[in-house]
Structure formats: C-alpha cells, structure tokens
Amino acid sequence: MSLFAKDALSHKHILITGATGGIGYETAKVVAGMGAKVTITGRNEEKLKGLAGELERITAKENVAVLPADLTEKKDRSKLIADAEKAHGFICGLVNSAGVAGGRTVEELDEEFIEKLMNVNYKCTLLLTQEIYKKMMERKEGDIVNLASLSGLRGTHGNTAYAASKFAVVGWTQSMALEAIEHGIRVNAVCPGYVDTEMARNSIRRKAERKGITFEEGMEEAANSIPSGRISTPEEVANTIAFLLTDAAANIVGESVKISGGSVMR
C-alpha cells in the first residue's frame, strides 16, 4: 500500500541512477506509483529490463525510460541526460543512488581502491549532477537527493575510504544546497545505516569473515547493534527519498536525513 497520493509526483520527470541496486530499484517503484515519469539507469542491462517490467505494472509503459550507462564515462553521462530529456523532457528530479562499497583497514588500502570509491561515490556523481543542475538553474526548479550513508556522518572500524567518499557526499550536499536554493532548487541527502540489500549483505559477509564468524551470525550481530533491533528495508529508504522529492518537503534544504534505527542520534 502506497504512503503517497498517486499524483504526488505526476508533474515530475525523475532520473534515478544506480537503479539496479536495492535502494534505487525500490525508489523507482515508489516514485512511479506516485505518477512520476521515470528514467532508470545503471550498468546491468538485465536488471534494468527486469525493473522496467515491474514498473510497467505500476505505471504506463510510456512513463518509463530505460537507459543503461556507465557514469564513470563522460560520454555516457552526457548521452544519458540527452536521451532522458528526449524521452520525458526536463529532468526536475534527480536521485543519485549509484555507488560502491568496500571496507578495508588503512594498512590494506591501495591507490586503485581509494580512487574507485571516490570516483564512483563522489566525483562522477557530482559531475553528472552538475550537468543536470545547470539545466535546473535555467528553469529555476528542481530537487536533488543524494544517497549518502551513516558512514558520511561518523567513522567506523575498517571503513576509512568508504567513509571518506560518503563524508564528501554530505559536504557537497550541504554546500551545494546553499547555492541551489537561491535558484529554487533543493538538495538533500539520505543517510541510511545497514539496509537489507546485496551491497550491505556483502559488507556484513566480509566483516563476518574478518571476525571468523558465519554470515548468519554477522547479520544477527548487525541487527543487535541497532536499538530498533533490525536493519532497514530498501522500501523505508525509498519512501524517505520520495518524500524529499515532493512539495511537502519544500523547506527541507541541505539536510542529511538519517535512517539508523536509533543507532546515530545528533
């Protein structure tokens, strides 16, 4: 059952990056159910087609554009924007859900690993946003939601490079928000902790291996570390992102909305 009116985003075209990941996948379904025209992108064409099939059970086929792209490539970023605009017109909502994870202690880090996390999670996401933002400035409207993390708000063991990339996203969100709101554009971030996605499960699996415990024990340990006693669902994060795209969130600017089950309060 939807939390939102079926026409809450009917006036918007929303581009979702990382739509093949758990959070991006669910976000696409939520905003499609709110009436938005949706462009989904990612590198896994098979998963994109599967998502498109699900979206077409929620909204009209013509409201969905499927555009595979590698956002680390400049030509792909530019083509993505041009093709999305051709399909649905002005992009007035952007959800930056694309990202990679990885946990290593400082002595295990190498230059390639650091560059990969910073490139995907921060640099390329910012460059894509910059192109779309310029068009939003011309229209004096737009909403941008960046997927950050609790790791962008506090450090944790074995998480130096990933946390640095997500701290960068939070800092960029706050700084850009101050500039963008002068043009009627809102920029916010969502900061979830563990979410029941493939990426999080892989992270928990690696952590369990380092501790010499089973994956199941690692999942239980992760849940028990949260005051609510469980990790979040992708749908919960998607609903928060969707809310930030609506007019109901019109005066929420530059925030980093935590979804932590009570594990991070400040």
Rank of each mutant, 00 (worst) to 15 (best):
G99E: 04
L51S: 09
A164L: 08
R154M: 05
L94M: 07
H11D: 07
N119E: 15
T41H: 03
T233E: 05
D247R: 15
G212Y: 02
E112N: 11
N96V: 12
V30W: 03
W172G: 13
Y25E: 07
E115V: 11
N239V: 01
H11S: 14
K258A: 02
K211L: 13
G33R: 08
R230Q: 00
K37H: 05
A101K: 01
E255M: 03
E45C: 05
T197Q: 11
G229V: 07
A36Q: 11
G229P: 02
Y162Q: 12
R154S: 05
G254Q: 01
C191A: 10
M34K: 04
A161Y: 02
I23E: 05
A242Q: 01
A249P: 03
H11L: 00
N121I: 08
G193C: 07
A250S: 14
Y133N: 08
N44C: 03
G50Q: 14
L15E: 10
E209F: 00
M137Y: 01
A168C: 09
G103R: 07
T197Y: 07
T160E: 05
A98D: 11
A248S: 10
D196V: 05
S149W: 06
E236Q: 02
M199I: 13
T17L: 14
M1R: 06
E131N: 14
E107Y: 13
K49G: 07
M265V: 12
Y162K: 12
G21H: 09
I241D: 14
G142V: 14
L150H: 00
G218E: 10
A180E: 09
G50L: 15
R230W: 07
E255V: 03
V38K: 13
S225H: 00
G155C: 05
K74T: 10
I91Y: 05
E216A: 13
P68C: 12
N146D: 11
K74V: 02
L80I: 04
I91G: 02
E141I: 03
V30S: 01
S97G: 13
E217R: 07
K123P: 12
F4R: 09
A168N: 09
A180Y: 15
H157F: 03
L15S: 06
F113C: 02
Y122D: 02
A164D: 04
M265C: 08
G142A: 02
V38N: 11
A168T: 01
L245M: 14
E54S: 15
G218D: 13
R230E: 04
T20W: 04
N202E: 09
N119T: 15
I213N: 05
A19K: 05
E45S: 09
K61L: 00
I204W: 07
L71P: 09
